[in-house]
Simulated assay, not measured.
Amino acid sequence: MKRIVMLAAACAVAVPAFAQNVATVNGKAISQQSLDQFVKLLVSQGATDSPQLREQVKQEMINRQIFVQAAEKDGVAKQADVQTEISLAREGILVRALMADYLKKHPVTDKQIQDEYNKAKQQQAGQQEYKVRHILVEDEKTANDLLAQIKKDKSKFADLAKKNSKDPGSGANGGDLGWAPPTNYVKPFADTVGSLKKGQLADKPVQTQFGWHIIEVEDTRPVEFPPLDQVRPQLEEMLRQQALGEYQKQLREKATIK
């Protein structure tokens, strides 16, 4: 009777220990903790924790263990190029973890975001954006001929753009490029746009690397700066990257490199 009691007690102790493993592969245990960590990683990347996901993860871990054991048995793990890849992968993981840890300890604050927003808004204060249309052609002579026709009758601009412009996007729309600041265009084009007033046609064709342009500014308006909530994610990411860049710079400056 005493032996039966001792055996029952031993089984009671052994069951919880065995329950910590979700599977064994050729005697190699796959722990519940390892599976939980794998699932946690997938969830952090957008997956949803579910019995189906956990079963998929379990099977994936079993497969990996089978293949890893085979690689080790066949000596693949000892090959020089494989060792190099393993080393590089380890370094990459550590670098990513280091950067993530730094950002966790030094989060971007609301004040930093607000200050950056105010700075950007101030920089754009007074800037204009332009509603532009153009006709793009191969050579200067063609551009001059078309410009002469438009100067006589501006109403011909859209039809001439549809018939002659090399720019398929705007050409089909009568040369319309929509609203944009001059900085959206290549420099010769941008300089001309910035020099024109509402309703003004450039007095001569403008050459860029794309060809010759006939340019007209149809309208102008002040640049409307977006509200903070709309640009917050971009500002936060920019500040995070700036912080990481500065951190990396500091680490390199402190390192002894010979």
Rank of each mutant, 00 (worst) to 15 (best):
R3T: 10
M6Q: 12
V13I: 12
V15Q: 09
F18I: 08
N21D: 15
V22K: 12
K28S: 10
I30W: 03
S31D: 01
S34Y: 10
L35P: 06
L41C: 09
V57F: 01
V57T: 08
Q59E: 15
E60Q: 12
R64W: 09
Q65Y: 05
K73S: 15
Q79Y: 05
L88W: 04
A89D: 13
R90F: 04
R90M: 08
A97D: 08
L98P: 01
D101V: 02
D101F: 03
L103G: 06
D110R: 10
D115C: 03
Q128I: 08
Q128K: 10
Y130N: 03
I135V: 04
E138T: 08
E140C: 00
A143C: 05
N144A: 12
A148F: 07
K152S: 09
K154C: 14
K162R: 12
K166W: 10
G175C: 01
L177E: 09
G178E: 10
W179N: 03
P181N: 11
P181T: 13
P182F: 05
A190C: 12
G211Y: 03
P222F: 01
E224F: 00
D229M: 07
P233M: 00
Q234K: 11
Q234V: 09
L244E: 02
L244Q: 03
Y247K: 08
Q250H: 07
K258E: 05
